[in-house]
Simulated assay, not measured.
Amino acid sequence: MYFKFGVDSFIWTENFNKEDLWIIPKAKELGFELIDFAIANPYTFPVEAVRDVLDRTGIDCVCTTTLTKETNPISPDREIREAAVEAMKQAVRICNELNSPILGGVNYAGWGYLTRKPRTEQEWQWGVECMRRVAEYAMESGNVTICVECVNRFETHFLNIAEDAVRFCKEVGTGNVKVHLDCFHMIREEKSFRGAVETCGKEYLGYIHVNENDRGIPGTGLVPFREFFQAVHDVGYDGPLVIESFDPGFKELAGNCAIWRKLAGSGEELAVKGLANLKAIAAGM
């Protein structure tokens, strides 16, 4: 069974800038077919330099981003919601420049924004309205699909499971908003890996992160990758599967993601060993 495996820039750096351009050829050298640029700040991301290195290297890319409390589409503050829309439009422009077909991540709410209450109908309306504006811009300006990542309850109260994410996509209603699944979050929130994939189906499954339950080396933990890969194959998903993790030395990300110990000798080791494990699992199916 063949899948297109990729690696996230978070493996090496938490805020990609010009000093990190070497990551692009390194990803290809290590055997990955694609790189996921985690856009920490869409206004400072070195898009032109990245495009030049991508062209020279000959590797495909996608993008992800995480919104903040200052760019939060479900904030009660209208100015913050407007800032969210503008930040997302800028991320879409980056995707257009890089020929990235996907903009994934926590792009529907401020990452880590928790009200300590269940999601409200008002928050849902704000989120749908903001995403619809961004999605319409994406259609007008290029061909980017926005993929909303279901993450665990400790990182958002807004979208935790595939069922809610599919409903969100349907209510945005533009046809270019799909679901971003991540095995790390799925093992905490979903009842079934196959069930979550089938809930999305080919129509709404837009992007996948293949992370282990502890964010360690994929294939060494509790995630049922055989079941997951079979379900992904059965629904006809043909997009990338990307390894993402973080180093405990990262100042901000490690704290936000509660990474308190080393999960491998280095982020690169985690990615390389994970790639070998996942390819072996897929080849044996």
Rank of each mutant, 00 (worst) to 15 (best):
M1D: 07
V7K: 00
D8E: 03
D8Y: 07
S9Q: 02
I11L: 11
F16G: 08
E19M: 08
E19P: 00
I24R: 01
P25L: 03
P25G: 04
K26Y: 11
K26C: 04
L30G: 05
F32N: 08
E33G: 15
I35P: 09
I35Y: 09
F37P: 04
A38L: 01
A40N: 00
P42N: 14
Y43Q: 02
Y43M: 07
F45P: 10
R51A: 15
R56G: 15
T57W: 11
I59N: 05
V62T: 15
V62F: 05
V62C: 14
T64G: 12
T66L: 02
P73R: 08
I74R: 00
S75Y: 09
P76V: 09
D77K: 10
I80R: 03
A83Q: 10
A83H: 08
V92H: 00
R93E: 00
N96Q: 04
E97N: 08
S100F: 02
G104K: 00
N107S: 14
Y113I: 06
Y113K: 02
Y113M: 09
L114N: 07
R116E: 15
K117V: 12
T120F: 04
E121R: 04
Q125M: 13
E129G: 00
C130D: 07
M131L: 12
R132Y: 12
R133I: 11
V134T: 09
A135G: 07
Y137F: 12
Y137H: 01
Y137P: 00
M139R: 12
G142A: 04
V148I: 15
V148D: 14
C150D: 15
C150L: 12
N152G: 13
R153H: 10
F154N: 07
F154C: 06
E155W: 05
T156F: 12
L159Y: 11
N160T: 13
A165L: 05
R167M: 06
C169A: 13
K170M: 15
E171W: 04
V172L: 02
T174R: 02
N176C: 01
V177H: 03
K178W: 11
D182S: 06
C183D: 09
C183R: 01
H185L: 10
M186L: 09
E189P: 00
F193R: 02
R194V: 13
A196G: 09
A196D: 13
C200L: 08
C200E: 04
G201I: 11
K202Q: 15
E203D: 15
Y204Q: 11
H209F: 13
H209P: 11
H209T: 07
V210I: 12
N211H: 03
N211S: 14
P218I: 03
P218C: 08
G219D: 10
G219K: 02
V223Y: 03
R226C: 14
Q230M: 04
Q230L: 13
V232P: 06
G236P: 08
Y237K: 02
Y237L: 07
G239S: 14
G239C: 10
I243R: 04
I243C: 05
S245C: 08
S245L: 08
F246H: 08
D247L: 12
G249R: 15
G249L: 12
K251V: 13
K251Q: 09
G265L: 12
S266A: 09
E268W: 11
E269Q: 15
L275D: 14
K279Y: 13
A282Y: 10
G284T: 07
